[in-house]
Simulated assay, not measured.
Amino acid sequence: MPDHNAISQEDTPAPELPVALDMPGKVADFLRASDLEPAERAALDQGVTVRRGQDYSLRITAVPGVHRQLLARCQPLDGGQGVPTVPAQRKARREYENRVTGLGVPD
Rank of each mutant, 00 (worst) to 15 (best):
P2H: 13
D3P: 01
H4L: 14
N5E: 15
N5H: 08
A6Q: 00
A6Y: 02
Q9K: 09
T12F: 13
P13W: 07
P13R: 09
A14K: 04
P15W: 11
E16H: 03
E16L: 01
L17R: 04
L21A: 06
L21K: 11
M23K: 03
G25P: 10
G25D: 08
G25Q: 06
K26Y: 05
V27F: 09
A28D: 06
A28R: 11
A28L: 03
D29S: 11
R32D: 12
R32W: 15
R32N: 08
A33F: 07
D35A: 10
L36Y: 08
E37N: 04
P38W: 03
A39H: 05
E40I: 10
A42P: 01
A42Q: 07
A43W: 09
A43S: 06
A43L: 08
A43C: 05
L44Q: 07
G47S: 09
V50L: 14
R51V: 11
R51W: 04
R52T: 06
R52L: 08
R52K: 08
Q54F: 10
Q54K: 08
Q54H: 08
D55L: 01
S57D: 15
R59T: 13
R59Q: 15
I60T: 04
I60S: 07
T61F: 08
T61S: 13
A62C: 10
A62K: 05
V63H: 01
P64D: 08
G65L: 11
G65D: 08
G65F: 09
H67L: 02
Q69C: 01
Q69E: 15
L70H: 03
L71C: 04
C74I: 03
C74Y: 07
C74D: 11
Q75G: 05
Q75K: 13
L77S: 07
L77H: 10
D78P: 01
D78V: 05
G79N: 00
G80C: 10
G80S: 09
G80H: 01
G80P: 12
Q81C: 01
G82Y: 05
G82C: 12
G82A: 11
V83R: 04
V83D: 02
V86R: 00
P87G: 04
P87H: 09
A88L: 13
A88S: 15
Q89A: 03
R90M: 10
R90Q: 13
K91C: 11
A92S: 11
A92L: 06
R93V: 03
R94L: 14
R94D: 13
Y96L: 00
E97V: 06
E97C: 14
N98W: 14
N98P: 00
N98S: 13
N98L: 14
R99K: 09
V100D: 04
G102R: 10
G102K: 10
G104W: 10
V105D: 01
V105R: 06
P106D: 13
P106I: 07
D107F: 07
